[in-house]
Design a binder for these strands. Structure first.
Lengths: 242, 242
DNA sequence: GAGTGGTCTAGACCACGCA
DNA sequence: GCGTGGTCTAGACCACTCT
């Protein structure tokens, strides 16, 4: 390991190197990294230092470590990604599993709100995906998903043949090499508009939960803005603070 | 260290021992623990094992470690506790600082809803504290706080002389030895009732954000149920998922 | 300078998955 | 039985804080 001008612990340098290699696709989602010994040899540090870097990567959900097997690049699978970022649950605890329907996709110029949320340049284009998410077969959430066209070239091809999966982040990862590692959410209460009432089967004037989410990739890029409007009469937004 | 019947790593056993000692008040909030060397000697394990346990305690926010100084029992200070559990913020990022006013306190029998949230026995009593929280001097949140009377003996004495601090968790810790380490929150949208409108200065029929929080102590006890009704026209509930 | 936590190393052994 | 990650140890040295 070369030392950088200002001091940075060795294990953090190893962490950075591995993040870059994962981001560059050196090992694809679900693939295994070299063993601790092999990495230590390649990077010319001790196994203990590599271990500390790998432990940090595992804590940040970038890799999976399995005793006796090896270390794997974390994958956004159906169950995993859904439970990680989809926070709607039954009151009292039980998790709720959503399905999706009624997708519509269009490409358009970015509006000021899009540019602000996604840090876009003037004149940028975006894809806008709208869909309804069902829980127990009943409409529960309206989602508007905005993606920078520059990052999602040719996204139209996923509209046909119902190829849009329920968990989009697996698709971002697999098709575009964009690993979503965190999301900033802002929640507020809002009053249902006519369109909300029609699509969610709400009474006029009902209250609903509006969530703005900006999803951040491994490299720190704002990859997605998702506005969700949720009927919270049957399900709640559940989160644990610690 | 004695080994337990079923296998548990040494450093986790050390973790458990230290949690118990902190919970028992062996070292009070803000006080320093013995040095790593001293703990290693006392528990008859290596310094590295103690270090791993202390790192885990620090990750769980139970202790603070300061290089060159020592290891301290984490304290619920004003700024810290407020930012940790109070999630209201200005849209786009800036944090919001609340103040409190209009406290009223009463002692009463627990109702079914209280018993369910706090896992109380039939016939238990609770304290109910109501207050308004202001942001920038304007009412923004109505809070109803329910505490098991069994855990908070003589809580009435804090009602007089405006002795109720803005950050209650510091008081729970200092006066009752109850360390709040996590909180489970459930959010939903609701329509403002007459009383909400009056106290929050809302228009009739406005939507507001209802938050049910159950706070959990170091020992795993449900210590507090807090129902907050928030005006989200100026501020939002902000959370980062990762 | 003394004492603390933070980093880094080297090596032994354990628990697990698989062939 | 081999290779993997997980635990535990011992010791050297570094960075920080206070006296």
């Amino acid at each position: 390991m070369d030392e950088s001008p200002r001091y940075r612990p060795l294990y953090q340098q190893v962490y950075d190197v591995l993040v870059k290699q994962i981001a560059a696709g050196e090992w694809g989602p679900g693939e295994s990294l070299p063993s601790e010994q092999a990495l230590a040899g390649r990077l010319n540090v001790s196994q203990g230092t590599v271990r500390k870097a790998l432990d940090a990567l595992a804590a940040d959900n970038l890799i999976d470590r399995r005793q006796g097997k090896g270390t794997y690049v974390a994958e956004h699978t159906q169950e995993r990604a859904l439970f990680r970022f989809f926070r709607m649950a039954r009151p009292g605890g039980g998790r709720a599993l959503p399905t999706s329907t009624g997708e519509t996709l269009k490409r358009r110029a970015a509006r000021p709100a899009d540019a602000a949320k996604l840090a876009l340049e003037p004149g940028a284009e975006v894809y806008e995906l709208n869909r309804v998410r069902l829980i127990d077969g009943e409409p529960a959430v309206l989602e508007k998903i905005v993606l920078p066209a520059a990052l999602f070239a040719g996204f139209e091809r996923f509209e046909r043949h119902d190829t849009l999966p329920n968990a989009l982040y697996a698709l971002y990862q697999r098709e575009y090499g964009l690993n979503i590692v965190s999301a900033q959410e802002e929640l507020r209460a809002d009053t249902a508009r006519k369109d909300d009432c029609r699509r969610l089967k709400l009474a006029p004037g009902a209250s609903l939960l509006h969530i703005d989410r900006v999803a951040i990739s491994l490299e720190g890029t704002r990859v997605e803005w998702r506005a969700s409007r949720c009927d919270t009469s049957r399900f709640v937004y559940a989160v644990t603070l610690s």
